[in-house]
Write a protein that binds this DNA or RNA. Structure first.
Lengths: 142, 142
DNA sequence: CCAACTTGTAACTATATTAATAACTTGTTG
DNA sequence: CAACAAGTTATTAATATAGTTACAAGTTGG
């Protein structure tokens, strides 16, 4: 498959909604910033709304964050958008009759879960506020 | 794309070489345990040899670990095998004229690097020895 | 009320990355 | 030298993703 950049696009949407709160927040405008398809943006918006990170109204341009940006972590977005998908993946087709093939899936699942926890703990430490601040700092330095 | 399980297969090869040190270590035998293609196994073997984790001899079945299993970390295998090392990926096609689109790539690259570091630090803590021990423990408990 | 917009879905297509396959060269061994 | 092994390269198949198209349903201003 292609590498997923859904997480990046979801953060993009949330940051956009906050930075351009008084501007055009239609799916078309957001899609132009992401350089993605408006339909894809709407799909993602819908997911973020269901996850309780974003509020919207059908038929109206009325997008705003459901929480303050300091109360939305990168992990919140990750869990909302990536459908709890794992960063590492075991090979689920190994020979059960072999000592290694018959046990390595359980072993690696445990280890991968630890790696996943470490990554998620780091994501939990990053708030949307920090991301937006960094974006604005970078813009100011241009 | 499909989800990659190269890391799992590479660990599988190394564990197999250690556990079945006195058995059949041909690419065909290993492929049967992974339930993968012998050619794929040989390619992976080749990569592991080049990374200094495995020793082999062309034309001969003479596979053995290049280091003691306690001196090979999961991170070593990860860095050897995964050519695209990043777990998270920025969307590289965003509108540079937008405040968000023009800066978010740099912002997220920095954050994703932190997440990557956290994940790799955890991988560095896991040795092949622990993985093999866990496999053998699971086998003994069957 | 209706034309022109919007969000929200669903189905389909295109693309990218991977694993699998096949074929070949080179090296080893009995 | 026959049989088999590692090592390599090229091609194909599989699959998760983004992109596209289409349309239903809600909103709004004239």
């Amino acid at each position: 498959m292609k590498f997923s950049h859904k997480l990046s696009d979801a953060v993009h949407i949330l940051a956009f909604v906050y930075v351009y709160a008084d501007g055009d927040l239609s799916s078309n405008a957001i899609a132009a910033s992401i350089e993605a398809n408006p339909s894809m943006v709407r799909r993602m918006m819908s997911t973020l709304v269901k996850a309780g990170l974003l509020n919207s109204q059908p038929g109206k341009v009325a997008l705003h964050l459901a929480k303050a940006p300091e109360d939305i972590s990168l992990l919140d977005v990750y869990l909302a958008i990536e459908d709890n998908r794992n960063l590492l993946h075991v090979d689920e087709k190994t020979n059960p009759l072999c000592i290694v093939g018959g046990n390595i899936q359980g072993t690696l699942n445990g280890i991968y879960a630890q790696v996943q926890n470490a990554a998620e703990a780091k994501m939990a430490q990053v708030s949307l506020r920090e991301i937006i601040d960094d974006i604005l700092t970078r813009q100011a330095q241009k």
